[in-house]
Design a protein around this nucleic acid. Structure first.
Lengths: 197, 197
DNA sequence: CGTCTATTTGAATGTACTCAAAAGCGGTGG
DNA sequence: CCACCGCTTTTGAGTACATTCAAATAGACG
C-alpha cells in the first residue's frame, strides 16, 4: 500500500528526504483489517501505534455500569491506538475496532525508538503531534463543559461530516456522552425546527 | 530562588549534567506573583510556559453564558500556561491567576527553542511531558463520562487532597463541571451518610 | 424474506440547574 | 479587638435536561 498519505501528513511538520522515508518504510508494517475486527481489546497491552491509510477505526471502553463510551473515531490520515497502554506497557482499558474494512500502518515501540534514533527529527514530529492531540483533547473537555448535548451534536456534525456518514448514531451518542435514545429525540426536535417552514 | 524542584522533576525523565542545568538556568526567568494576580488574561497571547516552584495557579475561562470553568489547578512541581496560545501565537481563551503568592519559573518560546537546540534531550523531556499531560487529559474525559458528580468529587478530593485545602469550593465545583450550589448539596448529603450512625 | 441490530417513541424518573435569600467566614480599618 | 463589608457557602422551591425501561418501527445484510 502507498504510504504517500502518511508522508504528506508528516511533511506538514517535518520535511522528509527520500532516505528518511526509506528508513520509515523499513520500520513500519502495513496491515489490512476487516470491518468489526478488533485491533485491541481491553486487558491486552497495546503493542502498536496506528496510522490509518484507509478506513475508519473506533476506540471505546465499557464503564463500571456496563455503559459503552466512544473515546475517538479515526479515519484516513489520523493516528490512533492506546497511548497509555503503549507507552507504559500496561493493560489497556480501551478497545480498538475497525468500523470499516481498513488499511493501517503500525509501529511497535521498539521500531519507533529505532526511528527516533535513526532520524531524530521524528522526535519533533511526535512531540508536535502530541501537542496537537493534547490541544484537541483539552478542547473536547471545554466543549463538553460549555455546551448542551444539542449544541455538541450540531458542532460534531459540522466538524466531522465525514464521520457522521460512516458510523451508527449510537456511537456518535456515546462519543458525545449522551444516550442513543436522547440523541434520537434531539434529532427529531431539530428536524421540527428545520422543516417547520 | 532555588530551581532544585525543577531539576528533580526533569531528572525523572532525562538526567541532567551540571552544564545542562547551567544552560537551563541561563534561559529561564524566575518571578514572584501575589495572590489574585493574573499571569494571563483572555485575549492576550500567552508568551510563557510556567513551572511552579511554590504556590498555586488556576487556569479558567468564561463560556458564552458567562459561566466560569476551571480548566486546571497547578501547584509546586507542575507546568502550566496556555499551550494553544503559546505554540500558535494566538489570543488565549483562558485566564491564569495566582491563587496564592507564588514563585514560578518561565520560558518564552524563543528561549525554549534555544533550549531544544542547545540541549536536544529537552525535546524528549517535553515530548514525554506532553504525553503524560495528554494521558491525564484523556483520563479526565473518561472520568467525566463514567461517573456522577458525586463520584467525581470524592475522587477529586482523594486524588488532590493538597488542592482541596487551598482553593475555594466554588472553583473545585467549576473544575468538576457542576455549580457551587450543587456541590454544596453533595457535601451535605455526604456528611449525612458519613455521620449517620 | 427473515433475522439482527439500530432507531424512534412514550411514560416515568433522576440528576443537576436557576434564582433568590439567608447564613457563615475572613480580612481590614477604626 | 470588635464591627462591618464582601465574598463564599448553604438552603429552599421550582424547573430543565437527560436517563431508564419497554415496546414499536425501521434498516441492513446474508
Amino acid at each position: 500500500m502507498d504510504l504517500e498519505i502518511a508522508f504528506k501528513n508528516i511533511a506538514r511538520i517535518v520535511p522528509l528526504t527520500e532516505d528518511e522515508k526509506k528508513i520509515f518504510r523499513s520500520l513500519v508494517e502495513v496491515i489490512t483489517v476487516k470491518r468489526k475486527t478488533h485491533l485491541l481489546r481491553e486487558g491486552q497491552v497495546c503493542r502498536y501505534e496506528y496510522f490509518i491509510l484507509e478506513g475508519c477505526l473506533r476506540s471505546y471502553y465499557i464503564d463500571s455500569n456496563l455503559v459503552e463510551h466512544t473515546t475517538m473515531f479515526a479515519i484516513e490520515g489520523w493516528w490512533t491506538g492506546n497511548l497509555k497502554s503503549f507507552v507504559r506497557n500496561t493493560p489497556s482499558e480501551f478497545n480498538l475496532v475497525a468500523q470499516e474494512n481498513s488499511t493501517v500502518l503500525r509501529f511497535t515501540k521498539e521500531k519507533l525508538e529505532e526511528l527516533y534514533t535513526k532520524v531524530p527529527k521524528f522526535e519533533r514530529y511526535f512531540r508536535v503531534l502530541l501537542q496537537n492531540r493534547l490541544l484537541a483533547t483539552q478542547d473536547r473537555i471545554s466543549h463538553h463543559l460549555s455546551f448542551t448535548a444539542s449544541q455538541r451534536y450540531l458542532q460534531f456534525i459540522n466538524k466531522y461530516p465525514q464521520i457522521e456518514q460512516r458510523v451508527p448514531l449510537k456511537h456518535i451518542a456515546s462519543y458525545l456522552g449522551i444516550t442513543a435514545t436522547y440523541l434520537s429525540r434531539l434529532r427529531r426536535a431539530r428536524m421540527n425546527t428545520k422543516f417547520l417552514h
